[in-house]
Amino acid sequence: MVVIEKIPGAELIRKVPGGGFFLTTSESFLKWGKASSLWPMTFGLACCAIEMIATGAPRFDIDRFGAGVFRASPRQCDVMVVAGTICVKMNDCIRRLYAQMPEPKYVIALGNCAISGGIFYYDTYSVTKGTESLGIKVDVFIPGCPPRPENLLFGLMKLQEKIRREKDAAR
């Protein structure tokens, strides 16, 4: 974002009573808006979902980052937080939910299970080994079993950073 100090005549603008305005490119404005209003999908699969709710609750308050509006319909969401173990029976459902989300869409894999199967990697016949094995591209991986709410907030900030750095704002 271009701040007022960097443009010529900044001093003049200051002098205008009540003055001060703000210049930016439409691109960074769009990115700023996108990054600060990420709406996640309420999509609790397993244990990690409880930590996701706890992050939404008062103590950690995910709303501070503009991501507190949990939507039940995938059509209103920007980010899918895959929170929990993905089981074989659930595979198609997750793919369909992801397909239903409008672009631009992002995916956070919360917890070891969503990353790779985690504690359920060995000896199970019914656990899918991670979100990526479903062919869904993940933007941010948050390890932990379960990750603490602070980790989720950190992951969210990383995602915002990523959005701000994106080349193509219209993605």
Binding site: L45, A46, T85, C87, K89, F120, D123, T124, S126
Partner: peptide, 15 residues
């Protein structure tokens, strides 16, 4: 049901 069937009982036989 069964969308979260993680086969715990099978796992237990090898732990």
């Amino acid at each position: 049901i069964g969308y979260l069937h993680r086969s715990m009982e099978k796992i237990a036989e090898n732990r």
